[in-house]
Design a protein around this nucleic acid. Structure first.
Lengths: 253, 253
DNA sequence: CGGATTGTTGAAGGACGTCAAAATGTGTGG
DNA sequence: CCACACATTTTGACGTCCTTCAACAATCCG
């Protein structure tokens, strides 16, 4: 199995139970590779699309822009995610989708996925489940935007990204690469850059987290999770990583 | 076809293309009727469930409660909706689900739906699509909570409910039954009761809407939609109702 | 090295929250 | 049909979290 399909199988294994036949069928999907530059739109609002894409490397976000230029980021995606899987059944995009940093993507035609779903119901179920988990994350964001303070919201996002990245093996312990400017963070958290800046300083001064360039380190997971009232259950992983376990120094990247 | 399955078919017809065979198969689903009193929880967070339910009459909401008792409502559901369809593939609830007012519900075992999905792929697609639209509404709420003012958010919710109810035939024109206290509205809009009260007064004084008991009347749809920056596209209906058309007096209930 | 992006800081204002109480509506039992 | 309890709506005063505006420092990148 080449690394491209490997990522897809790994992702679905994380959330659903697949047989070897399912995995082989997934690996047989036709794909087209494409690189996208940081900041570029991959799909724009209103567009009708015929492929889903699998994020291989990099970081993407989905967003909507209101008049007056206000932007709200709706979701972040990490390698292994299929950011526009929903397009399989809702093919007119109601939001845009962009590369946060330079990305490698694998495009898969809807047609091929439909055929696969017919042949392998377990894969269909896994993909459906994947879109439902996407929705579950939306719900958690709604709760945060509606009822958490800026500080808690920020802490919550840092927890979520830590857990998602660690589950996919893109984090060793509590240290991970989060290539987001404060501007991008602000648009995801429903805050302004200024507030994000101050909130991050607060988290830093409490020694909950550290941030050097785009490298995030969580120094005090229990405190951060308590502050954010974070419970990873909404990510619905089959085997959630135990985030309370400190990484050993020799595992550090 | 009895009225119960009628509601289900009507709902799915709204968003997907079904054949007569699909409709018959839907009508053959085994159901259990149940009434739930206003305010009662139907499903609680953490629970594992084996049935989906179709809302026949009434109004329900889904919510999460944070420590300190802060509550955030995540979604409202109107007759014809299947509020917990996601449980089909994510059977541990990450939020609670309650009856806003007295409700009539039809429960359908997951097992029966799975079987139907295997036999009739079009139904599976329609149901999947239904869960994706649910997610689309979440995204719109995220945008609102993150980037719209309290006033805009409230206006947006009133537009959304108007369109959803009208599509299901539960509204004549721009007048509909919205049995939500200001407290409930506040928890959905991420505001406090006090603010909701003032915002509603503002909308009333501008003569955008009127509210008598739980009967909402939108007097100035264009203005309300403009204020909210409402575009119903995210509801992904096959034939969106034209809300700009005024109802004729003789159609009024 | 120099322009552009990103991060940081301060001061002032506004949207919304909190607290508390009054007014109004609603359901129930006598 | 009235009286009473209770839920809901409304109002006012005041506090605070976050925004806005504006400037400057640090960092990135060719």
């Amino acid at each position: 199995m080449n690394p491209v399909e490997g990522a897809l199988v790994k992702r679905l294994d994380l959330i659903a139970e697949l047989t070897d036949e399912d995995r082989e069928a997934l690996a047989a999907l036709p794909i087209t590779l494409r690189s996208v530059e940081a900041g570029a739109d991959i799909v724009e609002e209103g567009q009708r699309i015929r492929d889903c894409c699998l994020l291989l490397s990099g970081f993407t976000h989905r967003y909507r822009t209101l008049i007056e230029g206000k932007r709200q980021i709706i979701a972040f995606h990490v390698p292994g995610d299929i950011p526009d899987l929903h397009s399989l059944h809702i093919n007119v995009m109601d939001h845009s989708f962009a590369a946060t940093v330079n990305c490698e993507l694998a495009f898969i035609p809807h047609e091929a996925i439909w055929q696969l779903c017919t042949k392998r119901p377990a894969v269909a179920a896994a993909l459906w489940r994947e879109t439902l988990i996407d929705g579950s994350i939306f719900r958690e964001w709604i709760v945060g935007l509606g009822r958490r303070t800026g500080l808690q919201r920020t802490a919550h996002l840092l927890c979520e990204m830590a857990m998602r990245l660690r589950a996919m093996g893109h984090s060793d312990g509590l240290r991970y690469h989060l290539p987001l400017t404060q501007n991008v963070l602000a648009d995801a958290l429903g805050l302004t850059v200024v507030t994000v800046n101050r909130v991050l300083q607060e988290l830093r001064q409490a020694d909950y987290v550290e941030r050097e360039r785009s490298r995030m380190t969580i120094h005090n997971w229990p405190a951060l999770a308590r502050l954010a009232e974070f419970d990873g259950g909404y990510l619905h992983m089959r085997q959630p990583p135990n985030m309370s376990v400190e990484m050993r120094p020799e595992d550090a990247i």
